[in-house]
């Protein structure tokens, strides 16, 4: 009979692991220091926060304010949709170049993926600032910012989706002498289509969230109202804007979840 002695409840960490823990703790402390963390402020903030809330409530629901904010919200959604649709469409050819082993060689894959990484690394609000300089204040700058942000996101994930599809159908077509472009169109794209839909819907959710704050830098949409509300100490209106954004973002997420289910759910 073999002797099954129980393992120890806690393994002693190796010296390297121990060092790792220490370094991690030091980094966390250092970060809190740099972040201006102050217990004092935390303790004194509840009264001030309560003060803000009491001044912001009830939110401003005057019909003319609501109408103005409503129009701005519609503009926000227009920016988000237009930017996301443009971005998704442009992402397709970009993703074809970024996907490894599809139609482009490893050099092009690498270059395109690095460019996409750069696009994602720059925050959407920074892209908005750049486009405000390039095309002037207004919703068009915001649309371009959303578009480029979407390309960074979808270009990469569409490419990953295509790399992940079952290679069997492509191999079967390769064996009959089909060209790469034909194989991509006939085997890879149809197989990746459900994943594309899912990714594109996430991109749309992301676009709606981004578009609500682009107004802060003058790139169109409802964000400007938020800024004006705070600048003029018109907290009730600012609160209306915040609530409106929350409702719309939640609604879009629900809609996108539903669409994802209806479009790709029936497949299996």
């Amino acid at each position: 009979m073999t002797d099954h002695s129980l393992p120890r409840r806690l393994e002693r960490p190796s010296a390297l692991a121990f060092l790792g823990y220490v370094v991690a703790i030091v980094i966390v402390i250092w970060a809190f220091q740099g972040a201006g963390f102050s217990l004092d402020k935390v303790l004194t903030s509840p009264p001030r926060f309560a003060d803000f809330m009491s001044r912001a409530f009830p939110p401003n629901l005057e019909s003319e304010v609501m109408a103005r904010l409503g129009r701005k919200m519609v503009e926000t959604l227009q920016i988000a949709f237009a930017g996301a649709v443009l971005g998704v469409i442009l992402s397709l050819p970009v993703a074809l170049l970024a996907a490894r082993g599809l139609i482009a060689g490893p050099w092009i894959n690498g270059i395109v993926r690095n460019i996409l990484g750069f696009i994602r690394a720059v925050p959407d609000i920074a892209w908005a600032l750049v486009f405000v300089v390039a095309v002037g204040l207004g919703p068009f700058a915001g649309t371009l910012a959303i578009m480029i942000d979407t390309i960074g996101f979808c270009g990469r994930f569409f490419a990953d989706d295509m790399e992940a599809v079952d290679k069997g159908p492509s191999e079967a077509l390769t064996a009959t002498g089909a060209r790469r472009l034909d194989i991509t169109a006939c085997a890879t794209l149809p197989a990746a289509a459900p994943a594309f839909v899912s990714t594109a819907l996430y991109a749309l959710e992301k676009a709606v969230r981004s578009s609500t704050i682009l107004g802060l830098v003058g790139a169109g949409g409802i964000g400007i109202e938020l800024k004006v509300g705070f600048d003029l100490f018109d907290y009730p209106t600012a609160m209306t804007v915040i609530l409106m954004i929350a409702v719309v973002v939640i609604a879009i997420e629900a809609l996108s979840t539903w669409a994802r289910k209806t479009i790709i759910g029936e497949q299996r």
Partner: peptide, 21 residues
């Protein structure tokens, strides 16, 4: 290779059809 493969074909254990088409 492609020219040659116009006259060959492959049938595998998995049917390898494209499901959505």
């Amino acid at each position: 290779l492609r020219v040659l493969r116009c006259r060959t074909g492959l049938v595998s254990q998995k049917h390898n059809l494209v499901p959505r088409l």
